[in-house]
Write a protein that binds this DNA or RNA. Sequence first.
DNA 1: GAAATTTTGAAACATATGTTGCGGTTGCAT
DNA 2: ATGCAACCGCAACATATGTTTCAAAATTTC
Lengths: 291, 291
Amino acid sequence: MGLYSDLREKLISDYAKLSPQMQKAARYILDHPNEVALRSMRALAGAADVPPSTITRLMTAIGVETWQEFRDHYQNRLLDQPASYAQRARETQKNEQDVNRDEHLLESISLTEIDNIRAAFSPELIAKMIDACGVIENARQVFIVGCGAAYPAAYQFAYGYRLFCDNGKLVDGHSGAFGDELRGITRRDVLIAVGAKPYIRGTVRAVNFARDQHCPVIAISDSDVSPIALDAMIKLVVRDHSQSFFQSFTAALSVMQALVALLVARGGQKALQRIAAAEEQLAAFDTYLEA
Amino acid sequence: MGLYSDLREKLISDYAKLSPQMQKAARYILDHPNEVALRSMRALAGAADVPPSTITRLMTAIGVETWQEFRDHYQNRLLDQPASYAQRARETQKNEQDVNRDEHLLESISLTEIDNIRAAFSPELIAKMIDACGVIENARQVFIVGCGAAYPAAYQFAYGYRLFCDNGKLVDGHSGAFGDELRGITRRDVLIAVGAKPYIRGTVRAVNFARDQHCPVIAISDSDVSPIALDAMIKLVVRDHSQSFFQSFTAALSVMQALVALLVARGGQKALQRIAAAEEQLAAFDTYLEA
DNA sequence: GAAATTTTGAAACATATGTTGCGGTTGCAT
DNA sequence: ATGCAACCGCAACATATGTTTCAAAATTTC
């Protein structure tokens, strides 16, 4: 029983002083506290990819006599947690218009976001996402457009897609007009457009332009009849409910991520190899911090 | 793996049919379910005042192959209070070699994403978010940095924040080095940094620079000891679990949105007015399509 | 560049754990 | 009483677990 109410803090404050392998172990423990409570030391060591002795050494390094003592702390933490959970739920339910106004808002946001995600992965939407993948795989070039609050979702897709395909192009309008970037778009290409109310003129224009060139459009939008989705080949209508009056783009982002994941999964070994190559290249450019 | 979602019911329904000693064991288990999850079988037997063999016999009596299986159920029960989806996600991930491979993947992604969001709005994180808002409100200038896959989350915050505060600055490194954009950062400012493994050098440098200038840092990251969060004043550790090997930034984005929403809510009427003005200005610029 | 120091992983060790087999006991019907 | 079946606990077993030891490797220091 140390001076620290929670050994996590000790682990964090001493982290810099630890040897590399111990850091690896400490990091895993910090990231997966429940495993400490439930699994054996050897199993934990295996999961953290360190030999068991490292764990023992880590114990002495942070001033804990034995693994049992360490585990007991985490078991108690696990036992106390649900209590605080339930307690808080009751608390916030009781006094609604109160000092807990902030907590209440955030919890409410959480529930709304979960609903949004859930709706985005309904069987219907899942089927459409799979269709969308088929279209993307057969496209000569993949354009992605999304402005304003929708830009993150568009960017996310473009960022992931670029790692294993080089025919993607993020149309962000940064370099002047959209027209330049969409030049040469044809029926063999595809435009992925993201946008919700209020519809930004640039996005709509891009969609209309693509339609005029008979280019199929995959729309991620808030309505089947939004100016973005109206004439789209595939309409992925995601909920954007939100407590504030900004719409939430969480579900849109999640869908974009899912599309990338699906494309990779369908791409098989080849896609994986390309990603590996891309990562290697980034490492060569010294983009990342040491392994 | 029985037909019962919870082995407790099986234990109760079969209770009358059990031999006296087994009843004693069953009774103790029913009264102390957490002990099953946390302690060893022999320890439990000792606590229940029965020999270990009685526990083993009880297992076969209720149709459970092994003690491990029994314990796993109770461990999940203990974990499933905060996060009920992780297990199901793991299950759906198992049967991949299937005709519905794509559907399964997407469903699994959905569950994982919901889990990530849920974890991001735990009571602990909620409290930290509120703290973060306090820091932001008192800051002279608010810098936001996020590179690569983390850029969308950073952008999202900057985009929303700009609508009601003009002291935000998105440090995207587009215009050359980070140093230029962070020049003049002081202890009265705040840096919001978003990033997960693999940590991009630029983000880490920005964080270190801010720390050297004694500027408080709000870190949205994947670990308490990530290079971004290690010395941060407020650490918002969000889960980034994902079915593909790209990390998911859904939770990070959601947290950023929540921060904006919370700031607006706390800003009251004044913030609303500013937003109205900003929207008006955008409308004047003809950014939006008319209603 | 060599020596000193630290760090690391494999193996060894004693103990703890889950399970099984066997003899003894109990309760019950004949 | 006696045979019979179910029940029970002890002890043995194989394996798993936490810890220590030791030599090789890596890092630092001079």
